[in-house]
Design a protein around this nucleic acid. Structure first.
Lengths: 262, 262
DNA sequence: GTACATTACTTTATGGTGTAAGGAGTCGGC
DNA sequence: GCCGACTCCTTACACCATAAAGTAATGTAC
């Protein structure tokens, strides 16, 4: 059963998100804190980066810091809040300055690329799926960056909002495929090519009428030649670039329509 | 630690995905099976639909069928495979016929709409995130439907593929926001408006310089008036429609470019 | 009719999870 | 010196997936 956060918990997590990262050393009785929220979050991010979200537990984070799981609860209300913090802090890493001098399109592309990079460096971001927007500084930072870059199209902000969310979705969706392919390759030890090959053989054997049942899919075939380069990962990148171009073409159309019939 | 599937397991799950749904009654010694893979999958889907993925456990599925958790392992290798089956069976529900008589654009829109509906009826689909493509009949069915509808644009299939994945990503991304808003509202008991209001107040109090730090976001404000209609859900739908239009505009550009300079 | 193999399902057990409760030790202020 | 506040630990509980072994039901072979 899911426990839901009351009002007090909401305040607590917002304070953690927005509060000062470097806490002034406490004065008063009691032992000095040996940990800090930031240290805990950093350790958790390290684990998620290196071993995936499945290996992230309060125990594993505690262990990495030389403590038990329960020690963390002095600093962080629970795992949910810890993950929210990880998520928001990581989003905050997104670079924020994009030159618009070579046009909005180039700026939008390099921003999308930075977002792609960020997600590929921290693939667990895609598994977080905050039950509601986290509303932390990192999330705001990303929104602000996206909005301000896309605002240079000259479109009204009320429309830019939708461009932003579409772009964000395209990036997230395509990078997810890339990230999952990497993770699966690491977990199974199988190279992607091997996995794909084994799976195709199995499919052909178990479903002999595959091409008859799904003619269009069959007609498509693999988009890139099999090489030593990871297949699915390459495909995901192509999907990212192509999808982005399509979207930006749509934006261009919108610009022309808005300013065209002058 | 994640256990990875060997070759034998792969065959077993492919057989479950592609095998006949109605199994002929076994002849031979031993008690008659009281359950079936399909019954188990259906029960699991019911639970996920009604109570969310968090409530889905081998126990809960077994209980719903009047069995213990372990009874399921006679039919299904493990939870992973069960979830794969749920995912693929549900994707198979997508309607497949879309009239192209009123143009590819209308067909694409109604297909995207059906996809949106499907995900909103089964929001847990978005949390499944198969570590690799499931390669089941449902997944193929969706791909086939998307590809064949978008192929009516006349674009080469190699480009249609990217349109398909971009469209899919836009739908998934926007519907995720809608689904999560519903779920959160149900779990917390708070109406969305209430939650949003409480959160804004908290933000304003804890981060007084919010509008200075994120001017563009601040300038945006809420996109729709607060009403009794769920705010985030309405917003998600708008994002879906607007994103889709942008993408389809991009497709139109591609069509013109391809056939234009005749 | 009886023995046996086969199978559905249960019980029990193992090692994982998040976290509530309470105890141990450490420090500052009086 | 001592109190109170504070960090951190141990213990405990409820839940999870699932391995292993046991039980009961069923068909076939003799």
């Amino acid at each position: 059963m899911v426990v839901f956060a009351g009002q007090g918990d909401a305040r607590r997590s917002m304070e953690l998100l927005w509060g000062p990262r470097v806490v002034a050393p406490r004065t008063g009785p009691g032992p000095k804190p040996g940990l800090s929220v930031e240290a805990i979050v950093a350790a958790a991010i390290d684990i998620a980066d290196a071993e995936g979200m499945a290996s992230l537990s309060m125990r594993s984070v505690g262990e990495r810091l030389g403590r038990t799981a329960m020690a963390l609860y002095t600093y962080v209300p629970g795992k949910t809040e810890l993950v929210d913090l990880m998520y928001d802090r990581t989003l905050g890493e997104l670079p924020s300055s994009y030159s618009v001098t070579s046009g909005w399109r180039a700026a939008a592309f390099s921003l999308a690329d930075a977002l792609w990079d960020l997600h590929l460096r921290h693939p667990w971001l895609l598994q977080v799926s905050p039950a509601r927007p986290v509303l932390g500084p990192g999330e705001f930072h990303v929104q602000e960056t996206l909005l301000s870059v896309l605002a240079s199209t000259g479109l009204p902000l009320s429309r830019v909002r939708w461009v932003v969310s579409a772009l964000f979705n395209i990036v997230r969706g395509s990078v997810q495929a890339a990230a999952e392919s990497r993770q699966a390759a690491r977990e199974t030890g199988l190279s992607e090519e091997d996995w794909w090959y084994a799976r195709s053989a199995l499919l052909g054997e178990l479903v002999p009428d595959l091409t008859a049942r799904f003619p269009t899919v069959a007609r498509l075939g693999p988009s890139v030649e099999l090489s030593d380069e990871p297949y699915l990962e390459r495909e995901a990148r192509l999907s990212f670039e192509a999808g982005l171009e399509l979207l930006l073409d749509g934006v261009e159309t919108a610009i022309v329509k808005a300013s065209g019939p002058r």
